[in-house]
Amino acid sequence: MTGFVRRFGTLAALIAIIIAFSIASPDAFGSPSNLINITQQMTLLAIVAIGATVVMAVGEFDLSTASIVSFGGILVVFLFKAGVPAPLACLAVLAAAAVFGAVSGFVVSRFEVLSFIATLAVGTIIGGITFWLCEGATLFGDIPGGFRDIGRGTMLGLPTLTWWLIGVAACAWIILDKVEIGRRLYAIGGNREAARLAGVRIVPNTMFAFIVSAVLSALVGILLTARIGSANPTGGGGYLLSAYAAVFLGMTAFREGEANVPGTLVGAAIIAVIGNGLTILGVSTFLQDIITGTIILAAVLVRRAGKQGA
């Protein structure tokens, strides 16, 4: 029993929450189209959280994600205004983000700076660049319709954003769980010195993790801009804490104490479902935060209890 709680407690909690909401609001919440829509609503948060998962796999934190989301959105519109075609603009944004990720990863691994500090600094720099690019204003206009379509509408019956989530999650899951680099990342996160002595190269692997996180954050910035049709220099500010909340929830699911992609998806889903369900039920926004925080605490405590019982 305790083993079950420990392994699948968080997933069970998600299912329980969905069932509870479905009973409370069978027509609005429980409808298939709403459940599909939740996958769209959780996409942006989940992609940022997946980036955070990869960084957490090497045992580090990336506090620059929120800044990179804002940066990505602003830069892509900035490039549109400069007349750069959409595909090129997107590639340029992702490349710029990769550079930021590489810098964070290099500083953290080569000079053994605490990742909290290094990414806080890099994030602050990125924030400055973002405000400088847009002079502090929200950027609107000159956004091509074709570009907007990558963040809205449906494809083969599912929202386009959901497809992005499926694609990113699948890639991240393959990277972390299926191919060699994932073993190296988890080895570094598990025991950096042991991994080093076993021949795992710390610097390039850590840099890789930070680059993935930065690129995914920038992708979210692009998708957010496509979804809402404008870009705000603080538009990504809300993602950092929720993304790490999702990762921490996910660490209590499936695998003990390790950041993992399926777990992060469950974590992001819990946060999205609570937001969706409580809004549908007309519960105040303030209460939603209280409930989300309580669930995170409960998940961690239940896992500890499960551990002691086992």
């Binding site: 060699e180 073993r183 190296r184 598990g190 025991n191 010195e193 042991a194 003990e256």
Partner: peptide, 20 residues
């Protein structure tokens, strides 16, 4: 502290130095 990666499985601990 220098040998085992205790959060990973036995199989992975055996493979980490030679993933090929």
């Amino acid at each position: 502290h220098e040998g085992l990666i205790v959060s990973r499985t036995i199989a992975e601990n055996l493979a980490i130095a030679n993933l090929k």
